[in-house]
Amino acid sequence: MAQQAGWRSLPKGGVAFRLSTDYKTGDWRALKPVIDYNKCTKCMLCWLFCPDMAIVWDGENVVVNYDYCKGCGICANECPVKAISMVPEA
């Protein structure tokens, strides 16, 4: 881990100086969503509802960004065609 900033270099006023995208929450996951692209209708509801912004629309498909997915399973539950299954992490 990088050396943490001391008081001399921290920005004034306690404003955050990094974006949370540097913090990977994917390791919280116990179950992993796997999308069956044969079933997926690209309805986008999983993208819309994902609380962790971990489902990304790449322009052609919805793709899971496992760096952030916490494995809550909302996507699988909300998928109208049940194209997402929650698989235990290896």
Binding site: P11, K12, G13, V15, A16, F17, R18, L19
Partner: peptide, 8 residues
């Protein structure tokens, strides 16, 4: 307003 430096 004064200025500040953040990483991003």
């Amino acid at each position: 307003v004064s200025k500040v430096k953040v990483d991003y």
